[in-house]
Simulated assay, not measured.
Amino acid sequence: MKRFSCDESVELVTAYLERELDQVTAGRFEEHLGGCEGCERYLGQFRTTVTALSELRPQRLPDDRRERLLSAFRDRRTS
């Protein structure tokens, strides 16, 4: 069976963390991690980032700033 490349593994990180990979693919992913320190480190960094971001609470923008931002998006879309 062909081993995953690092590029293939990086593409699967989100699906792996969300437990969306089938058993065979998850096994191959974990096998790659076991032999690749860089991908193992990347997965750890990704987990840390997800955890940190999940602790953030949304903050409401002041109405004038929100309107300027929305206006900029609208202008960019029509350009």
Score class of each variant (00 low, 15 high):
2 K>T: 00
3 R>M: 06
3 R>D: 11
4 F>G: 00
4 F>M: 05
4 F>I: 03
4 F>E: 05
4 F>T: 01
5 S>N: 00
5 S>W: 00
6 C>D: 07
6 C>L: 07
6 C>F: 05
7 D>C: 04
7 D>G: 04
8 E>F: 04
8 E>R: 02
9 S>H: 04
9 S>P: 00
10 V>S: 10
10 V>H: 15
11 E>V: 06
11 E>C: 06
11 E>A: 15
11 E>K: 11
12 L>Q: 05
14 T>W: 13
15 A>G: 10
15 A>Y: 13
15 A>S: 15
16 Y>V: 02
16 Y>G: 06
16 Y>N: 07
17 L>Y: 09
17 L>T: 09
17 L>H: 09
17 L>Q: 08
18 E>L: 11
19 R>P: 09
19 R>I: 13
20 E>P: 12
20 E>M: 15
21 L>A: 10
21 L>C: 09
21 L>Y: 11
22 D>G: 13
22 D>C: 06
22 D>T: 12
23 Q>A: 15
23 Q>R: 14
24 V>T: 14
25 T>Q: 15
25 T>F: 06
26 A>R: 14
26 A>N: 09
26 A>H: 07
27 G>L: 07
28 R>D: 12
28 R>W: 08
28 R>H: 12
28 R>E: 13
28 R>P: 01
29 F>N: 07
30 E>W: 08
31 E>G: 08
31 E>M: 05
31 E>D: 10
32 H>M: 04
32 H>L: 04
33 L>F: 00
33 L>Q: 03
34 G>S: 09
36 C>M: 03
36 C>I: 04
37 E>F: 01
37 E>S: 11
37 E>T: 02
39 C>G: 05
39 C>D: 04
40 E>A: 14
40 E>Y: 03
41 R>D: 05
41 R>G: 05
41 R>P: 01
41 R>L: 04
42 Y>F: 11
42 Y>M: 08
42 Y>R: 02
42 Y>C: 03
43 L>A: 03
43 L>G: 05
43 L>D: 02
43 L>P: 00
43 L>M: 03
43 L>E: 01
44 G>N: 02
44 G>Q: 06
44 G>L: 09
45 Q>D: 13
45 Q>I: 07
46 F>L: 11
46 F>A: 03
46 F>H: 10
46 F>K: 12
47 R>N: 07
47 R>V: 10
47 R>T: 07
50 V>L: 14
51 T>Y: 03
51 T>W: 01
52 A>V: 08
53 L>W: 09
53 L>Q: 14
54 S>M: 07
54 S>P: 06
54 S>I: 01
55 E>I: 03
56 L>W: 11
56 L>V: 13
56 L>F: 12
56 L>I: 11
56 L>H: 12
56 L>M: 08
57 R>M: 06
57 R>P: 09
59 Q>R: 15
59 Q>C: 07
60 R>S: 15
60 R>M: 06
61 L>S: 14
61 L>M: 13
61 L>R: 11
61 L>Q: 05
62 P>T: 11
62 P>Y: 13
63 D>K: 08
64 D>V: 15
64 D>K: 06
65 R>V: 11
65 R>Q: 04
65 R>N: 10
65 R>W: 14
66 R>Y: 06
66 R>V: 02
66 R>K: 12
66 R>E: 13
67 E>F: 14
67 E>C: 11
68 R>A: 12
68 R>C: 10
69 L>C: 10
69 L>I: 15
69 L>G: 13
69 L>R: 14
69 L>V: 15
70 L>Q: 13
71 S>K: 14
71 S>Q: 13
